[in-house]
Design a protein around this nucleic acid. Structure first.
Length: 255
DNA sequence: CGTATTTGACCTTG
DNA sequence: CAAGGTCAAATACG
């Protein structure tokens, strides 16, 4: 077959499993309290990973693909209007967000029984990149991990892309200028076509309840700005997720 | 042995 | 003063 086929199959199997679980949950009204959003996430992620692997193989310049995800839960400005953050809830705390992170701390949070992990950009020093993220488990079953991205990636993408990188390495970025049209059309529509569904996520502390929508984030966005599509906090140079990224409020790579 | 992670101490903020 | 965030020495790992 091709390099990475094992990972593609693994991703598809994971998606299949989640789809089956989703079917079971949706088929049993009694279990309607079980959050389905993480299952949707996993299904979408699996397709995205598999598609990226197939696409990489069919192109002469294979590159890893950041996991396509549903839209961000929330973005916001700081008090000075300059600080940005981006919240993403995922069943996978280590899901591929396209960046290389280095852990620099872990702390027990008073308002939660789970510890919070602190990461900064792996190129923070050499490229003076101030991007950080925090990851914390906020829900037990199924587990939901909240990742809060803070700051902007100002490191250049060539720091991330190495020819020998594979999907398991920290350098996981996609070159959209290398992607064919099929890829863009096959992945992106999924990100906005899933019906809106709100779930209530309980957190033991003061974390606000998040209304998770795939194409609608009302109530989540401080400044009336919406993440209409999946836009992880990365889109450096010609490695963009959407053609007109400037339409969005937050683009960590455009300083 | 170099690099990444862990973890207690320290700093900042409200 | 408490809580969250960061630092940096110790430790683990490849």
């Amino acid at each position: 077959m091709f390099p990475g086929v094992d990972k593609a199959v693994e991703a598809l199997l994971r998606g299949q499993e989640s789809a089956n679980r989703l079917k079971t949950v949706l088929g049993q009204p009694r279990t309607s309290s079980v959050p389905t959003e993480p299952l949707f996430d996993t299904v979408l992620d699996s397709f995205s990973v598999a598609l990226s692997l197939f696409t990489n193989f069919t192109s002469s310049n294979p590159q890893p693909h950041p996991v396509a995800r549903k839209p961000s839960m929330k973005t916001s400005h700081g008090k000075d209007g300059l600080e940005h953050y981006y919240i993403d809830d995922s069943p996978d705390p280590h899901h591929n967000d396209g960046f290389c992170w280095r852990k620099y701390g872990q702390k027990k949070i008073k308002t939660s029984s789970h510890q919070r992990c602190y990461y900064r950009c792996g190129y923070a020093k050499e490229r003076n990149c101030n991007a950080t993220k925090r990851v914390q488990q906020i829900q037990e079953s199924p587990s939901v991990y909240r990742t809060t991205y803070v700051g902007k990636h100002i490191c250049q993408v060539d720091a991330f892309l190495q020819p020998q990188d594979d999907i398991t390495n920290c350098s996981k970025m996609i070159r959209f200028d290398k992607l064919d049209q099929t890829m863009s059309e096959s992945v992106m529509p999924q990100l906005v076509s899933v019906e809106h569904q709100a779930i209530t996520m309980e957190d033991e502390g003061t974390d606000q309840i998040m209304n998770q929508g795939c194409d609608n984030n009302e109530g989540l966005v401080d400044d009336g700005q919406l993440w209409a599509y999946q836009v992880p906090p990365c889109s450096p140079g010609n490695f963009i997720f959407l053609e007109d990224i400037s339409a969005f409020d937050y683009n960590p790579f455009h300083v």
